[in-house]
């Protein structure tokens, strides 16, 4: 390799390394702000700011869904299946994928009593796909498989 080309090679590699390092630093500095939602442990332990618009997520705890018979009001508990959970109160139509054991994101505010007053409910489906017939045969590739996604971040 001739000297001129070698110099260009080093310069180009330097450019790429600097760009990568800058981006990596920016991401590291941003830290938790890169997360789209708070996991149950943050909400339960009070790390989450009260009375501010935030997003939180978790799995819908079995037998926790409590619907009002005469309105669209519903209450349920979101958990990470690792001991942390919080209660959500919502008035409105739930997404089609909403069910017990399903990953759910809620957007709204945490009130003084520690209940999450949700204004929007989003369904977070996992990466597993399965035809319905197979699903009946073996109870689920993991309705709870994605619970790990609500655990403590890296």
């Amino acid at each position: 390799m001739n000297p001129k080309r070698k110099q260009r090679l080093y310069l180009t590699i330097f450019l790429f390394v600097v760009a990568s390092a800058t981006t990596a630093l920016l991401i590291l500095v941003s830290g938790e702000n890169m997360n789209m939602f708070y996991p149950p442990i943050d909400v339960a332990s009070g790390k989450v700011p009260a009375d501010r618009q935030i997003r939180a997520g978790g799995m819908v705890l079995e037998n926790s869904v409590d619907r009002q018979p005469d309105s669209l009001a519903v209450r349920f508990v979101l958990t990470d299946y690792q001991g942390s959970f919080f209660e959500v109160s919502y008035v409105g139509i739930l997404p089609d994928l909403f069910r017990e054991g399903q990953g759910i994101l809620v957007e709204g505010k945490l009130d003084a009593a520690g209940t999450f007053q949700a204004e929007r409910v989003l369904a977070k489906h996992d990466e597993n796909y399965m035809p319905p017939e197979l699903m009946d045969l073996q109870q689920g590739p993991g309705s709870t498989a994605s619970a790990s996604e609500f655990g403590t971040p890296l």
């Binding site: 997360n35 939602f37 994101l105 989003l122 977070k124 489906h125 597993n128 996604e149 971040p153 890296l154």
Partner: peptide, 12 residues
């Protein structure tokens, strides 16, 4: 999808 909490599911 692995580094952060995202709405998007991880790779299948």
């Amino acid at each position: 999808v692995e580094w952060w909490h995202t709405l998007h599911q991880p790779a299948s």
